[in-house]
Computed example of a mutant assay.
Amino acid sequence: MSSANSGILSRIPGLAYVGLVLTPLFWAGNAVVARGTVEHVPPLSMSFWRWVIALAILLPFGFPGMWHHRRVIRARLGSMLALATFSVAAFNSLLYYAAITTTATNIALINATIPIFVALLAWMLLGDRTRPIQALGIALAIGGILTVVARGELSVLTGLQAQPGDLIMVAAVFSWGLFSVLLRRQAVPLPALTFLTTQILLGTLVILPFYLVDLFFFAGGFELTRNTAMSLLYFAIFPGILAYAFWNHGVHAIGPARAAIFMYLTPVFASILAGIFLGESLGAFHMIGGLLILAGLVLATRTGRRQAAYSLRSQEQNGRDT
């Protein structure tokens, strides 16, 4: 976004709030559309072609910055490759694999705990101080995740009968947490658009060999119909590029702490959209797990402002796609 456009938008504060409402709506739509499309398009195909399309759209705008900052990119190539692997490649591919065996509502609820995983991993790997009330928030959110994964039945956990998709989604959130912590340790001095374009390019290259193996030896290809094409375009444009732009502007306009509140809308939107388009219904365990997750998020992000603000800046720079 140019400085001129940014200056114009900053004079209309309401646009920031509109964008911050649309962002979780697009992230929720990502889970719902993935759940509805995964029977027709293999997960790795969804992930690969989503990023190819997004890259084709962004490259004309991002390439000049990549060329201008090519020495920085070359010097930090190893770090940027690791960052792209955990975020663009692993997070999104795992999310689409999760959609095979779990609901869009579960995906969104588990995905909402990203700030919790960032704070937890920052404490474990970076030695960040965790206050008692923040630890309580983390514990509540983890309890909410276990409630959702167990579908409210303890025997699911003790008998190791959890849905594979729920566990895969936990792995996806863990991957994003590792990305956020790694970004903090090895920050790359690049403009946001340059960083995003480079990350998508590197992440697409990481996915490519796995996609080719999956294409030729496992899942095979897919039929390009109007519906599958529209799904891929949605993945690339709405939860990817537009959500990134809206989130970026919103965080700059009202600050990361206030913008964080809008993240809580993602599971709400997902449950509504999943009910309308997929016929998913909410169970008591969704309500209980969702309340525990919400309470944990409020406690953890209010008392761990540095970690929360860092997580939000990470999402602003890379553009999260749930």
Rank of each mutant, 00 (worst) to 15 (best):
G177R: 08
T197Y: 11
G203Q: 01
V33W: 09
L299F: 09
L201V: 09
T158E: 05
A309C: 12
Q163M: 14
L15H: 07
T37I: 07
A295M: 13
W123F: 10
I237Y: 08
A28G: 00
V88N: 04
V268H: 05
L294S: 04
W176R: 14
F48I: 06
M263E: 03
H69N: 10
F210H: 15
M169L: 02
M124V: 07
N227C: 14
I142P: 07
S47R: 07
G250M: 01
T197L: 06
I57D: 14
L178W: 06
A243Y: 13
T105C: 10
L299P: 09
A150N: 00
M124H: 02
F195V: 04
A139W: 13
S93E: 01
L125C: 04
L157Q: 12
R302K: 09
I53M: 11
S10R: 07
A308P: 10
P115G: 05
A192W: 10
I133V: 14
I241T: 08
R305L: 00
L215Q: 05
P267I: 07
M263K: 12
V33G: 05
S2H: 08
T228F: 03
I114W: 09
T228Q: 05
M287L: 14
A253S: 01
F235L: 08
L190R: 00
L59R: 08
L182R: 15
P60N: 02
L81V: 12
F195Y: 12
V38I: 08
T102C: 06
S271P: 00
P209Q: 01
F63R: 03
P209W: 01
V52P: 13
G283P: 07
M263R: 12
F222G: 03
L109S: 12
A308Q: 14
T204I: 11
P13W: 01
I73C: 03
I12R: 12
M287V: 15
F91Q: 06
R320D: 09
R302M: 10
G14H: 03
A187S: 10
L182C: 14
V32K: 03
A141S: 07
W123C: 15
Q134Y: 10
V156A: 03
A295K: 04
L55E: 11
V298C: 09
F91R: 05
R226I: 00
S281H: 15
Y234F: 07
W49S: 10
A243Q: 05
S175D: 01
S281D: 13
V32G: 07
G62N: 05
S6A: 09
N111A: 15
A112D: 13
V251I: 08
F48Q: 06
M263C: 11
I8N: 10
M263V: 15
R70A: 02
A295V: 09
F218M: 08
V213E: 01
A245I: 10
L282S: 09
L208P: 14
A98Y: 04
W67Q: 06
A245F: 13
A28L: 04
G296C: 11
L190E: 02
A104Y: 01
N111Y: 11
